[in-house]
Amino acid sequence: MDATIRNTGDEVWAITGASGRIGTVLRQAMLPEVAHLVLIDVVPPQQLDARERAPHAELGDPASLRAALQGVDGVVHLAAVPDEADFHDLVEANVIGTYHLLEAARQAGVRRVLLASTGRVIGMYDVGERVDVTKPTRPDGLYAVTKTTVEQLGRLYAEKFGLEVVALRIGAFKARPAEARDLSIWVSHADAARAFLAAMRHEPITFETMFAYSDNRDGSVDLEAGRRLGFEPLDDAAVHREEIPGRPGPVTSGPMGGDLASPEFTLSKQRPF
């Protein structure tokens, strides 16, 4: 796919989960690229720029989402329960919430939606097995199951309803790698911003899946799908190895999800039934 970059300077973009860790980074990176940003979060965003607005809207209230997205060209959908939790809570926020977002975007005439997925949708693959976006998902927990469903909702809305959708499988989003697993799965703040900006700018798009990881020397995922969309990661976790306590080498055995792939990690989060 040839990477054609469109001019977005007169567009309006929205970010759900705009007050979160990733949303805060993307807000700073995206504001210079567009005419206006619409910031959506149950935690009101602070220190609004003159080109930002923060309407009251929630994933559980489709009408408020539809109103907030009027006049919006592109949406970055980050709002979610971001880690393992009770399955019912995960489905309510991540699956039903994403359905509300996509349907509100369709009704509001939004052109493109970027869906935040996770590298944990492949967390049961063995470390060292090279995985690209064509491989079947193998989620390492119920959180990752809901993100697999999020990806498929995006595909449906692209292929059936005509939205342009990119699902970005985000790696370990940290300012610096902090443990051995990060040597393979880290994504720097700057590379995460590059990934989302590339996915929003690229033409043409129907439905695409990509890994939003840094270009880690010890990485276990194929970044080519992102490069086809214009994403060129510049950072490498190996550069920071000496800063990690114990100066570990990369993990060489077990599931990619590490301890997150254990039965106890998921079962301990579930309500009794």
Rank of each mutant, 00 (worst) to 15 (best):
F87C: 00
V121T: 14
I96H: 10
G60T: 15
G9H: 15
V187A: 11
P62M: 03
L260S: 05
I96F: 12
H36A: 15
E264I: 07
R66K: 14
V76N: 04
L59T: 09
T206M: 04
K147W: 10
S214P: 04
P263M: 08
T118P: 01
P82M: 04
H202N: 13
A80R: 03
A172L: 07
M30G: 00
S268Y: 00
F196S: 08
L260N: 10
Q47C: 07
A105Q: 02
S220D: 14
R194H: 11
T134E: 15
G226I: 03
T209Q: 08
E33T: 13
F173G: 09
R201P: 01
V133E: 14
L37C: 06
L223P: 09
P62R: 10
P32Y: 08
N7Y: 11
G97T: 00
H100A: 10
P248E: 01
L229H: 01
D259F: 13
N216W: 02
T16W: 10
L65V: 07
A144S: 13
L163G: 06
L65F: 00
G171F: 00
T137A: 11
Y157H: 09
G154H: 05
Q152T: 15
T209F: 00
T8V: 15
H88S: 14
E164Y: 07
T252E: 15
K269W: 11
G154T: 10
E84W: 00
R227L: 01
I122Y: 10
R169A: 02
